[in-house]
């Protein structure tokens, strides 16, 4: 579904990502992990065509972002749902309008159907009755759930969850991952970036770990835990869970 070849990106002379090769298939739920500031969010934006890589190319459904016109890109982006790390709820719209937005923009449903779908989706994320509120009136956890509803309402074939639990308490985080798991459809691809490996475990089938500007590991959590590589063991909490937690806390600075 998505193929990235030799993707690299620098900002102001600083190389954030280089030589990233990835392939994702339908039906997968893949965790993208790595310390804060390693470029997880950046990679997600490169995959969905919001950021142009300096090197390499990304193809989605066999079409490379670089070859597409502005209109074609916009069309292809409709096949993505995205939950942004910073919520990205439109502050000039109500919750209901926010959630409805991807459907309204696509313009293939009647207003009535859109409303029904919005109510249904908000109920699913346990937020019924907040349609008329603005995002500034919501708590962090509620905003994430609204963002979750907006990301999934279009039932897009590819859904990206960028740090869905950043800044949330453990209970709310678990709830968010459960919701992601509930909303997962068998034929769609989901990419989840996070450093909350423990709570991702039940949801993700395999992991990509970014470290030092590139892909450091790809495989299952089991493989990572059994690896002899100390970085992996620390990160995936093999036999050194406590050390891992402490290191992670230190690395969480910018995310």
């Amino acid at each position: 579904m998505i193929v990235a070849k030799g993707v690299g990106k620098s900002f102001g002379g600083e190389r954030i990502l280089s030589g990233v090769d990835l392939t994702f298939h339908e039906g997968e739920v893949v965790g993208i992990v790595g310390p804060g500031g390693v470029g997880k969010s950046l990679l997600m934006k490169i995959l969905c065509g919001l950021v142009e890589p300096d090197e390499g190319e990304v193809t989605v459904f066999g079409r490379s972002w670089a070859d597409l016109s502005v209109t074609e890109r916009a069309k292809l982006r409709e096949r993505f749902g995205m939950l942004f790390q910073n919520y990205a709820l439109f502050d000039f719209m109500t919750v209901g309008e926010n959630v409805a937005f991807p459907l309204v923009q696509r313009g293939d449903m009647s207003a009535q159907d859109v409303q029904e779908r919005v109510v249904e989706r908000l109920t699913q994320v346990e937020l019924s009755g907040v349609n008329h509120l603005y995002s500034r009136e919501l708590s962090g956890g509620m905003k994430k759930r609204v963002a979750l509803a907006r990301a999934t309402i279009g039932e897009a074939p590819i859904i990206i969850y960028d740090d869905p639990t950043a800044g949330l308490d453990p209970v709310t985080s678990s709830k968010i991952f459960n919701l992601i798991s509930d909303l997962q459809r068998p034929d769609s691809l989901s990419l989840i970036t996070s450093h909350d490996i423990e709570r991702m475990m039940p949801v993700c089938q395999r992991y990509i770990m970014l470290y030092q500007g590139g892909v450091y590991f790809r495989g299952t959590a089991q493989e990572a835990k059994q690896s002899q590589d100390p970085v992996l063991r620390v990160f995936f909490g093999g036999d050194a869970v406590d050390v891992g937690r402490r290191t992670m806390a230190g690395a969480e600075g910018i995310s």
């Binding site: 982006r77 409709e78 993505f80 995205m82 942004f84 439109f90």
Partner: peptide, 16 residues
Amino acid sequence: SMVVTEQVDALRMCNA
């Protein structure tokens, strides 16, 4: 602040 909170990216993801 809409750029920083990724609202501008979100608009573009929704073909807006």
